[in-house]
Design a protein around this nucleic acid. Sequence first.
DNA 1: GATCTATGTTTGGTATAACAAACATTTTAT
DNA 2: ATAAAATGTTTGTTATACCAAACATAGATC
Lengths: 171, 171
Amino acid sequence: MTKSDSSLSENLEDYLEIILSLEKTNKVARVKDIAEKMGVLRGSVTGALKSLADKGLINYEPYSYITLTRKGSLIAREITRKHAVLKDFLHNVLLLDPERAEQNACRMEHAMDKAAIDRLVQFIEYIHNCPRTGDDWIQAFVNYYSKKEYSMIKCTQCLDDCVARYQKNKR
Amino acid sequence: MTKSDSSLSENLEDYLEIILSLEKTNKVARVKDIAEKMGVLRGSVTGALKSLADKGLINYEPYSYITLTRKGSLIAREITRKHAVLKDFLHNVLLLDPERAEQNACRMEHAMDKAAIDRLVQFIEYIHNCPRTGDDWIQAFVNYYSKKEYSMIKCTQCLDDCVARYQKNKR
DNA sequence: GATCTATGTTTGGTATAACAAACATTTTAT
DNA sequence: ATAAAATGTTTGTTATACCAAACATAGATC
C-alpha cells in the first residue's frame, strides 16, 4: 500500500463523502452536483477527481459519470458513519441545536480515528442501556446546563424515579 | 476586523499553541524549539512566524525572541483549553489510553467551536455531579465495552449502591 | 442534423505549507 | 578577539487546493 493510498486529505475525504451521497440519490455523481455540494467551482472538481482516480477510489473517465470503487466506497462509508455518530452525539447527548451539531460533526469526522469513534458509539449505547442513565438522564442535563446554579433539590425524587422505573422494567 | 484576523489555519493555531507552551517553560519561544515541537525544519518556522506577526498575534523581529501579543495569547489559551478539555473527555470519560486520547485531542481541538466545547465541559461536570452518575458510573463503562454481552445481572446491586451513596452524602 | 445550452476540462495564477540547501547572524568556547 | 558551533533566514522547488476564464464536449431543442 503506497503512501497516497493510505493518507487522504480532509478535502478528498469530503469529496468521497459527497460522491457517496450523490450515488445514493442519483446512482452516479456528476461534476456539477459535486461542485455545488463542495461549494467550489466545477473546474476545481476535475482536479480532485483525478487525484481520487489516481488513488483508485473512484471510477473516472473525462466527460463521463463518476462512481466509487469498492475501496472508495468503504472509505466513504466509514467517514459517513463517523459523521452520523458525531452528529448524534452532539445533538442528542450534548443537546446542541441541529445546525451547530452538523457544523461541528463535519469537521470532527476528519479528526477522530476509528478507535475513538467506536468507543463513542459504545458510550452513547451505555448511556441508553445503563439503568442509571437513559433518555430521562439526558433530558435532565438541560436543567443542569441551563441554570446558573444547579438545584440538587430534585435529586432525591429523580433517583427514586430511576429506581422505580428499573424495578418496573425488570419484571 | 479583517479576514486574516478572524480565520486562522489549523496549522497557525498549532504554532500559537506551541509558542504559548514554550513561553510557559522558557519565558520566550525560539525558532529551533518551535521547529522541534512542530516536527518541521527551522526554515519552515520563519514563514509561519511572519504570517503570525502579520496578523498581530506574535511579537517578532528577525533573529530575536518570540512572544505572543495579547491577542495571540488569548487565541493560544483558547485552543489550549479545548485541547485539555478534549483530552480529559477522551481519556477520563471514554477511557481511551492517554496516547490515543492525546492524538485525537490534537486534531479535534481545531474542529470544535466554543459552544460545542463549553457544552462538553458542562456535560463532563454533569456526569461528575449528578447523583445518578459520577466516577463509579464511568468505571462501570469498562465492564460495558469490554464484554461482548453486557451482563445486566449486577445492575440491581449497582443501583442500590448508588442510592445508598447518595443517602450517605446527603447528610 | 445543426445549433444552443448545459456540463466538463484546461490553463494560468494565487495562497498555504513544507523541504533542502545555501547563506547570515548570534552565541559559545578557546 | 577570533574561530567554531548553533541558531535563524532566504531561496528555489514541491504539493495541495482553489478561482477565473477560455475552451471542449455532450445533450436538448428546433
